[in-house]
Design a protein around this nucleic acid. Structure first.
Length: 531
RNA sequence: GGCCCCGUCGUCUAGCGGUCUAGGACACCGGCCUUUCACGCCGGUAACACGGGUUCGAGUCCCGUCGGGGUCACCA
């Protein structure tokens, strides 16, 4: 029998980072064994704008590269893959359950049910439905209907004995059947509920392994009941632990952003992302721009492979040392046996570490290809880019080295793209390195004239030239280097100065030094930021 | 609260009775390197929740306690 897994999101409008991990584990398990990965849309609760709410989910899965063999867009032998379009199948199952006595029509009113629940709670005993409004015969049903009652269909759950589940990650789990209520599977208006639909579809689509989050563990009971009473073959189950909040074991939730922002690392990640997003002209509303949602990582320029690599290790490990996995390696090594049982909390710092390593491994050509669109969106480069952009960016990235952790970090080097007269100077740096130190402006001016006549504008020659200059002036290298950096980039930090000068080229360096000197002499200006 | 699940450094984890005075990674703290920042290199702090068993021997098995989480819908 072939391995078939599925990821079955409901159209909520966003793809949760924990959902990505669930999808990843399903994908890995199936594809690693030559099986199929199916995407099914669990939209039984049919809101009107399914397409709109689904788009970000499909987009997110595509972005991380978790492709599905069957599902929306690609179709497949078990189409349709939307539960909202499979209603007849559910109806047939409901009827079967009804005729075999595994389910019954129930005419209780919500308030009557609530009263039973309250009474049970008052008495301090577990709530068990009295089945008082259960229609055992058609005559019962007629009578209830005559009273103006609405009938739903409930499962007639066993009330004795034990259910034993052999979960692929949790092992043996035992629960009393009696602990499960007679769950509603069809509403009075004929619409069907999730659990029924899931069972019917998992069977229909021949899902061999149901791999999902732990929150579904307790649901398994009623689902297995339906599998059995419908005469379906039971799939294997594997319940994954949660992706938890940073520094806690609670399930990560999109809605608790404010709380997470109190975590230093999380706040840092958010701030970093926002600063990139703003420069790209993106809106940063919590509803859409949120590290719990996968879109965040795409927008900020994280590498999908590194994200997946990080997520893979959140609850799974191969051994005591291997951390970096390519797609092929993941597929080769992944197994459910090595999935952990305890929830794993999301650690932004560690994610960034994976990103950083992955970025360094990425061939320079690919890095350039990823960076250029960001520059275009930030309006630092035209679209299409001029021919010199690629080689220019290549030199820049080589010089920047591992300072580029995510693609969006390229915007920290905006000074390499703005026109000389637009360059913004960090006022504090200008003060510290040029305006205040005695003789600094004179030194800078002298250095400028050396640059003007430098024979070759390469990093090596510039370095030689600078050392000679330092010697002839009787100064230390720090006395000139910082001033020059501030003058040509506007910033107090950056990568190697000689690379910086060479990349910028002589003309721009001279123009920028002139301008810095002018501004330093003329006091603070509008361009210099703080006034 | 009932039921279920879980419990090794701050975090992710290795560990499937002796090789564990508990290993790796990220973070953190020192030092080196250095034109800033980052990297790199060297070193360091830091964990078996607790209590009982079982055993010659327990992080590893059993029980209990405590702690954390999940779930108890005509949501998915």
């Amino acid at each position: 029998m072939s391995i078939r897994t599925r990821f079955a999101p409901s159209p909520t409008g966003y793809l949760h980072i924990g959902g990505v991990r669930t999808a990843l584990f399903n994908w890995l398990f199936a594809k690693g064994q030559g099986g199929q990965f199916i995407l099914r849309i669990d939209d039984t609760d049919a809101q009107r704008n399914v397409e709109e709410a689904l788009a970000p989910i499909l987009h997110g899965l595509k972005w991380v590269g978790l492709d599905w063999d069957e599902g929306p867009d690609v179709g497949g032998p078990h189409a349709p893959y939307y539960q909202s379009q499979r209603l007849e199948k559910y109806q047939a199952a409901v009827e079967q359950l009804l005729t075999t006595g595994a389910a019954y029509r129930d005419y209780a009113k919500p308030e009557e049910l609530q009263a039973e629940r309250d009474a049970a709670q008052q008495a301090g005993r577990p709530y068990v439905y009295s089945r008082k409004w259960r229609a055992k015969t058609d005559a019962d049903a007629k009578r209830f209907e005559a009273e103006g009652r609405q009938g739903v269909v409930r499962l007639l759950m066993p009330r004795e004995g034990q259910f034993v589940l052999n979960d692929l990650v949790r092992g043996e789990v035992r629960v009393d059947w009696a602990s499960e209520q007679d769950h509603v599977i069809q509403r009075a208006d004929g619409s069907c509920l999730y659990h029924l639909a899931t069972v019917v579809d998992d069977n229909d689509m021949q899902i061999s392994h149901v791999i999902r989050a732990e929150e579904h563990l307790s649901n398994t009971l009623r689902q297995v009941f339906m599998f059995e009473r419908l005469g379906y073959e039971l799939p294997q189950f594997a319940h994954l632990p949660y992706v938890a909040e940073p520094g806690s074991k609670t399930k990560l939730s999109k809605r608790k952003l404010d709380k997470y922002l109190k975590n230093r690392d999380f706040a840092q990640m958010m701030e970093h992302g926002q600063s990139i997003a703003r420069r790209l002209g993106l809106t940063v509303a919590a509803e859409t721009f949120n590290p719990v949602i996968v879109d965040f990582y795409e927008q900020v320029g994280y590498l999908p492979d590194a994200l997946l690599n990080y997520l893979l290790l959140l609850g799974w490990s191969l051994d005591d040392k291997t951390e970096d996995f390519s797609r092929d390696e993941m597929l080769k090594h992944f197994s459910l046996e090595r999935v952990n049982k305890a929830p794993a909390s999301f650690d932004p710092e560690k994610l960034v570490a994976f990103e950083s390593r992955a970025m360094q491994r990425l061939p320079i050509k690919h890095r350039v290809a990823k960076v250029v669109p960001f520059l275009q969106r930030a309006k630092l480069v035209t679209d299409p880019p001029p021919r010199e952009t690629a080689p220019y960016v290549t030199r820049l990235l080589e010089a920047a080295g591992d300072r580029l952790k995510v693609v969006g970090d390229i915007l920290d080097f905006d000074d390499f793209f703005v026109a000389d007269e637009q360059l913004q100077f960090d006022d504090a740096a200008l003060d510290k390195r040029i305006r205040k130190p005695a003789g600094a402006t004179e030194l800078l001016a002298k250095y400028r004239s050396e640059l003007a006549i430098a024979e070759q504008f390469t990093p090596e020659r510039l370095e030689q030239m600078t050392h000679a200059f330092v010697e002839s002036q009787g100064i230390k290298i720090g006395d000139i280097v910082h001033a020059v950096r501030v003058a040509v980039t506007g910033k107090p930090i950056g990568f190697g100065l000689f690379d910086t000068l060479a990349i910028l080229g002589r003309e721009r360096c001279l123009a920028r030094i002139d301008r810095a000197l002018e501004i330093a002499a003329g006091g603070r200006t509008l361009n210099s930021g703080t006034i």
